[in-house]
Computed example of a mutant assay.
Amino acid sequence: MNNRIISDYSEIFETYQELKGDFLESHIAKLKELDMYMPHSSTFFCVTNTTTRSFEYVSKNFHPSTGLDAVAMCQQGMTYWWEQMHPDEMQLWLQSLTDLMTFTMSEINVHDRKKVSYTWNYRIKVADGLYRSILQHTTPMYFDEEGKPVIGLAHYSLLPAVSKFMPIRATAKMLNQNEEYETVFFKTYSEQKLISEQITFRERDIIRLISFGHSSEDIAEKLFISTNTVNSHRRNILKKTDCKNTSELVARSIREGMI
């Protein structure tokens, strides 16, 4: 494992607080209970501890999804996971984490940080030796004394194998007064530009809600805007993406990581 990667990661999540208490054990106990009832799928979850670069818990779908060693994942922590990542993406991935943390600490009020959730992607080498794209969605569970998120619940979705390269993207979304996510940060870490780069934060939120089956009226209420504004955004989105209808838009959004 590249020591520079470990050093850079540690610097991003540096904390001066010693984490104590039984809150983590309580969370893990409940998550283990829930994990018993989770169906087998290509999605798994982990409780990540950035202060120790460890996984406090790895769900049962980890091995079926990736074919990788769950015991090694638990014992070796993030070092084992990083060893599976595509070497060409390590620095881009670190830059995305740095930008997300910088944005959080400088732009998000300390009282609002518990409302923020983060999404990014990268490639890992699965058991058959091929690299597959992973979409990671992390929600903070605990913050240090400076308000830095240091322990999180991370959901990982192994995406279908495709020949087309998927650029690394980082997104931060924050819950509004209606408990609906609104995009507050988005950045692509690649020279490759797709049509999604033309999509605004507001349009991205509308696409996500369309994919959930919400009507224009529902979307307007959730995002505190008028129905006419939503319909205008929908027309603009279809024009920008060159999609003929909503079904084509949703399919393309999933494929290109716009949601």
Rank of each mutant, 00 (worst) to 15 (best):
T183G: 04
I207C: 10
E146S: 13
Y189G: 06
Y156E: 05
T200M: 01
R202T: 13
F143Q: 06
N176W: 07
S163M: 05
E197L: 03
I151E: 04
E191T: 12
Y131W: 03
F186G: 06
M174V: 14
H137L: 09
D128N: 15
E145T: 12
S163W: 02
I199F: 00
E145S: 13
K125L: 08
D205N: 13
S190W: 01
N176V: 09
A172N: 05
A161K: 12
H137R: 13
D128K: 11
G147V: 12
N178K: 14
A170T: 08
M166S: 09
K187C: 02
K173N: 11
I195V: 14
I124G: 06
R169W: 03
K173W: 00
Q136N: 12
Q198W: 04
T188F: 02
Y156N: 14
S157E: 11
F201Q: 04
F201S: 06
R123H: 14
Y122C: 08
E203F: 01
I206T: 09
A154C: 10
F185A: 12
R132V: 06
D205P: 02
M174W: 00
P167H: 07
K187G: 03
E146P: 00
K125R: 15
P140A: 14
D144E: 09
V126R: 06
Y189W: 07
E197G: 05
A161W: 06
E180I: 04
S163C: 04
F165M: 11
F201N: 13
F143V: 09
I168G: 02
V184C: 10
Y131Q: 10
P140T: 11
V150I: 15
A161P: 00
T138E: 05
P167G: 11
T138D: 11
M174T: 12
I124M: 13
W120N: 13
R123P: 01
K193A: 10
E191F: 04
I206Y: 02
K173D: 13
R132F: 08
M174K: 15
P167N: 11
S133N: 14
K173R: 15
I207R: 00
I124L: 10
Q136L: 11
I134T: 07
I199S: 05
Q177N: 15
T138C: 09
E146Y: 05
